[in-house]
Deep mutational scan, measured.
Amino acid sequence: PPDDERKKAEKAARSGNEEKAREILERLGYSEDEARELAKRLR
């Protein structure tokens, strides 16, 4: 489910793995720019 994926992205971002967070968010349908912004904010 998307919620689980989003949680994974948050966890990745918090542990400093912004790249992985961005990949997950892009898979969820965010654009590259949106995903980058979100990954930064989740950190």
Rank of each mutant, 00 (worst) to 15 (best):
P1Q: 13
P1D: 14
P1A: 13
P1N: 15
P1T: 15
P1M: 13
P1V: 12
P1W: 14
P2Y: 14
P2H: 14
P2Q: 13
P2S: 11
P2R: 13
P2I: 14
D3I: 11
D3M: 11
D3S: 12
D3V: 09
D3G: 11
D3P: 10
D4Y: 11
D4A: 12
D4I: 13
D4K: 11
D4M: 11
D4L: 13
D4F: 11
E5D: 11
E5V: 07
E5S: 09
E5H: 06
R6G: 04
R6K: 08
R6H: 12
R6Y: 15
R6Q: 08
R6D: 03
R6P: 03
R6T: 07
K7C: 13
K7T: 13
K7L: 13
K7Y: 10
K7P: 04
K7E: 11
K7R: 14
K7Q: 13
K7I: 12
K7A: 12
K8T: 09
K8F: 09
K8G: 05
K8M: 13
K8W: 11
A9D: 02
A9P: 04
A9W: 07
A9T: 04
A9V: 05
A9R: 03
A9Y: 06
E10Q: 11
E10G: 07
E10N: 05
E10D: 04
E10S: 08
E10R: 12
E10L: 15
E10K: 09
K11Q: 14
K11A: 15
K11H: 14
K11E: 15
K11V: 13
A12Q: 08
A12V: 06
A12T: 05
A12S: 05
A12H: 10
A12F: 15
A12P: 03
A13S: 04
A13K: 02
A13F: 06
A13P: 03
A13L: 07
A13Y: 05
R14W: 09
R14Y: 08
R14T: 06
R14I: 10
R14P: 02
R14V: 08
S15C: 13
S15E: 15
S15I: 07
S15F: 08
S15R: 12
S15Q: 13
G16V: 03
G16I: 04
G16Y: 06
G16L: 07
G16A: 04
G16Q: 04
G16F: 07
G16N: 05
N17A: 06
N17D: 15
N17R: 06
N17K: 06
N17V: 03
N17W: 11
E18C: 14
E18M: 15
E18T: 09
E18W: 14
E18D: 07
E18S: 05
E19H: 08
E19V: 11
E19L: 13
E19I: 12
E19Y: 09
K20A: 12
K20F: 10
K20W: 11
K20G: 08
K20S: 08
A21T: 04
A21D: 02
A21M: 06
A21S: 05
A21W: 08
A21N: 03
A21G: 03
A21C: 10
R22A: 07
R22E: 02
R22D: 00
E23A: 12
E23R: 13
E23D: 07
E23N: 07
E23V: 08
E23H: 10
E23I: 11
E23S: 08
E23F: 07
I24A: 03
I24W: 05
I24H: 04
L25S: 00
L25G: 00
L25N: 00
L25I: 01
L25T: 00
L25H: 00
E26Q: 15
E26L: 15
E26K: 15
E26D: 01
E26W: 02
E26S: 08
R27D: 03
R27M: 08
R27E: 04
L28P: 00
L28R: 01
L28A: 07
L28D: 01
L28T: 01
L28Q: 02
G29N: 01
G29R: 00
G29L: 00
Y30R: 01
Y30P: 01
Y30E: 00
Y30A: 02
Y30L: 09
Y30F: 11
S31K: 05
S31E: 03
S31F: 02
S31I: 01
S31P: 06
E32R: 11
E32T: 11
E32S: 12
E32A: 14
E32C: 10
E32Q: 11
E32K: 13
E32V: 11
E32F: 11
E32Y: 11
D33A: 14
D33G: 07
D33K: 11
E34H: 05
E34G: 03
E34C: 10
E34R: 06
A35F: 03
A35G: 01
A35L: 03
A35T: 03
A35I: 06
R36N: 04
R36T: 05
R36P: 00
R36S: 05
R36A: 07
R36E: 05
R36D: 02
R36H: 04
E37V: 12
E37W: 15
E37F: 11
E37T: 11
L38M: 12
L38F: 07
L38S: 00
L38D: 00
L38V: 04
L38G: 00
L38K: 02
L38E: 06
L38T: 04
A39C: 14
A39N: 00
A39M: 08
A39R: 02
A39T: 04
A39S: 03
A39V: 14
A39W: 03
A39P: 00
K40H: 15
K40D: 05
K40R: 15
K40P: 00
K40E: 09
K40I: 07
K40L: 09
R41A: 07
R41W: 10
R41Y: 08
R41I: 07
R41L: 12
R41M: 10
R41V: 05
L42F: 14
L42Q: 02
L42H: 02
L42S: 02
L42Y: 15
R43E: 03
R43W: 14
R43T: 07
R43G: 06
R43D: 01
R43P: 01
